[in-house]
Design a protein around this nucleic acid. Structure first.
Lengths: 221, 221
DNA sequence: ACGTTGATTTCGTAA
DNA sequence: TTACGAAGTCAACGT
């Protein structure tokens, strides 16, 4: 990884055109060739960047870099002053472990249909439809189909999604009638209102509790 | 801006839980207090981060940082070795100018109603409704109102948005009937299916061609 | 302060 | 490879 602190001007042209007037910034070149230009605020996002794979061409005097990427993307950096220029070997990145995302929630709910009610049985996860897969399809104690949309945070989008699925599923005489359940760790009031106005019931899910069912030793009490 | 190259282990807990095993990484602390941890690949995204506002607390021996943000977000960085530690004053960031985003597409389409058909006339941009502005409102050759939703990339969300507007507009006896057109540089197949099932027509837009109409000198041939 | 919308979104995953 | 949905989405803008 090469870290440059320098006064520079930047032009990007590709999916859009963008220009950065001259100022002092951090220019980061990573081992995969990617380049990013950071200002002294906003943790997450560089002002400009080029994702790998890309190629850096330096001008003879080293004052201009032309970075070309896929699809005519081009980044041009014109340096007017260098304050520091250091290169480091960081070695292998062992990678990030995440825990608590939607996929895990879906997995846990598939394994514990009783969360929704007695006698529920999983039909399948990612139940396919013409407009995409329904997260979970169950049959309730009475054998009626129930489509479940799983979200970490329940917002209106999720209700819209489930509504589209239900429209489609209820057009199928072999499945009809299909109920809908909107399951999430938190459900925004607006989403709840919209869901209920469409007879979709809402189910709050306790991720830590469900995880505890599978790993009783992790359980706190 | 403070740049640390160090061997470290990181734990994040907040909206999810995440763990980074020990490895050498770049830790960046910006002037606004935000912290990000970068590996030697992926231009754009840090492995872990904390957005401002947040507070950094160093342990007595300086080997552990606890960064706390809003909403119980916490990042804990445990350092085992420091390779470099430099602080720079970058000064003011004059800011980024962009060109070619949705706003421009909307502007170009407003100036060129013939993109949609002969005899179309613009009623107005950002046509106001109770649930927000419609990107473009036209009258077609027959004088019928047409609401246009403009996107750079046409996905299902945009169709939903337009659908909500159309519902509302068609409830107004002075406007009714209002047709809908979904205009984008690319339209995803699923979005197209949903749009057409609701009698919303799809219009692909060539940004460079439209821009060429206004700046004939830029045109290539 | 909150909600909505766009983004050079990026990133993962399944078809 | 493509296409779609999620993201610790982030960030800007309007109410």
């Amino acid at each position: 990884m090469r870290l440059l602190i320098a006064k520079c001007e930047v032009d990007y042209s590709g999916r859009l055109d963008a220009h950065l007037p001259e100022a002092t910034r951090l220019v980061m070149v990573k081992a995969d060739g990617s380049v990013s230009i950071h200002a002294d605020d906003r943790a997450y996002k560089p002002l400009n960047w080029m994702t790998a794979p890309c190629q850096i061409t330096e001008s003879e005097d080293g004052r201009t870099w032309t970075v070309t990427g896929a699809n005519d993307d081009m980044l041009r950096i014109s340096f007017s002053e260098f304050y520091s220029d250091d290169t480091y070997d960081l070695g292998e990145e062992p990678g990030l472990n995440k825990d608590g995302v939607e996929a895990q929630l879906q997995e846990l709910l598939a394994a514990h249909p009783e969360t929704f009610g007695e006698g529920w049985q999983l039909v399948r996860r990612e139940y396919p439809t013409a407009i995409g897969p329904v997260d979970l399809m169950f049959r309730d104690a009475a054998g009626q189909h129930v489509a479940v949309e799983v979200k970490r945070r329940g917002e209106i989008d999720g209700v819209e999604q489930l509504t589209r699925y239900l429209e489609l599923l209820n057009a199928d005489p072999l499945l009809r009638p299909v109920r809908g359940v909107f399951a999430a760790q938190v459900i925004k009031p607006q989403a709840k209102v919209v869901a209920e106005s469409r007879s979709i019931s809402c189910q709050l899910v306790d991720y830590n509790f469900l995880r505890g069912l599978d790993n009783p030793e992790d359980r706190l009490f």
